[in-house]
Amino acid sequence: MSLMRARFPLLGLASAAGLLALTGCVPNAGAPGSSHAALTVDSSATACTVSADEAPAGNVRFTVANSGDQVTEFYLLADDGLRIVGEAENIGPGLSRDLVVQLPAGSYFTACKPGMTGDGIGKAEFTVTESEGAAGASVDLAARIETANTNYASYVRDQVAQLVTGTAAFAAAYTTGDADAARALYAPTRAHWERVETIAESFGDLDPKLDLREADLEEGQDWTGWHAIEKDLWPADAEAGFTAYSPDERQRLAGLLVADTATLNDKVQDLHFTLAQQTNGAIGLLDEVSTGKVTGEEEFWSHTDLSDFQANVDGASVLYAGVRDILVEKDATLAERLDREFAALQELLDAQRAGDGFRLYTELSPAEIRALADQVNALGEPLNQLTATLVL
């Protein structure tokens, strides 16, 4: 099966983007003499203990240590307690990861999620106070960052607009019984979602409504979105005894998919970013690759994981390109390394192309999958340094 996709150049997109998404981990220290608030977080099986409940406005680093026995996540939430301002994901027992964010004065919440499921634990108020040192960027740098922000916001709106159009066509094919057309539209339409995937995580329950996998369902949870429909479109790969959905259920799922995508489109019309949100966005998209796409768990029935993989890399590369010129001035060696690792990952992906798209993930050999996983890790290590290098 050939999967259509759009590609973006990995490098040289100076006007293409700022960086978004609200997730990330940044393990390296800031430049000598830099000023930022540094806090620690202990995430155990029963508590989420932050070393302080306030910090001055500006750059804040949370070093999150997992003292529990499950993989955990740490969240910084907005004052509504729902919108994600920053997160550190996939922190294994005994390990630690850093989250670096740029915060204006205001009220927030902190929380941890052992096992990475459920509502999380230890939700607590966190206050960011006014600080004269919060505005330290030069006028020139501030203007360049603002340009990157504006360009990336335009990119996001364009991708989501294309997602709206593609989703409408996909839903129409699915509900009228044209399964072949729906299957052909599935991967290229989802690519628009995957390029900006981490953004939806900041909008409450939109992400699970649109992209929840069956394996992540909680008891009693209504399963909707792309993967619920995916299973119905590829029944041969479903479990024995799977029963195709009724026409009414197909109408319901397609209607919700279209409506929830329209809601996402409404929400991205007025996005604003900080530099840290931008850089953390690239990190978050690569995390999506390492935790879902490279394992083959994302597209469990269609096996179109490489299309998602490419789209996540597209998004991360656009994000990186938006700040690359600034990074070159601050740390040219890191920029050169990121250039090299992005290019190497793209080369491996290109080797899996079939016509205009990709081979099915089930057609890859263990060695090919391992090579992709290793290169994701090779890119992830320097990419995780991006926020601290640019922000601290």
Rank of each mutant, 00 (worst) to 15 (best):
P382W: 03
A153H: 13
T224Y: 05
G322N: 02
K113Y: 07
V26G: 15
A276Y: 13
L253D: 01
D140M: 14
D287Q: 13
V318G: 14
T176Q: 09
A228I: 05
L348S: 08
A142N: 09
L271M: 04
D79H: 04
T40F: 04
K231W: 03
A143H: 11
F170A: 09
A351K: 06
S154I: 12
A343H: 07
V328S: 03
V289H: 03
G225V: 11
G58Y: 02
D308L: 08
F62C: 05
A38G: 12
R353A: 07
T167Y: 05
I121C: 01
A172Q: 13
H36V: 13
P93K: 03
A52E: 09
V313G: 05
S302V: 14
G81P: 04
A57F: 09
D140I: 14
L95I: 08
P32W: 07
I229Y: 06
R183C: 01
N312L: 08
V100W: 10
D98I: 06
I145P: 15
G357D: 04
H303P: 00
Q251V: 10
R252M: 13
L3T: 12
L76G: 05
F309N: 04
E341F: 07
T110N: 02
A148R: 04
C48V: 00
A276L: 09
S51I: 00
F273M: 05
A367F: 14
Y155I: 15
E194R: 01
W223M: 02
R5C: 14
G204E: 08
A262S: 11
Q70C: 05
K231D: 13
Y361F: 11
Q346I: 09
Y152L: 04
E125D: 13
R7A: 15
K267N: 06
P208Y: 06
L22Q: 15
T72S: 10
S107F: 03
L319K: 15
T198N: 11
D42V: 08
A47T: 08
F358V: 12
R324L: 13
T263I: 07
L103G: 10
G380D: 13
R144M: 11
V289N: 03
I91P: 02
A78D: 04
A378C: 03
L39D: 02
V156F: 06
S15I: 14
D232G: 00
N66V: 06
N384A: 14
A45E: 02
R144T: 07
A182T: 04
A388C: 12
D79A: 08
T291I: 15
L77G: 09
L334E: 00
A124Q: 14
G92T: 11
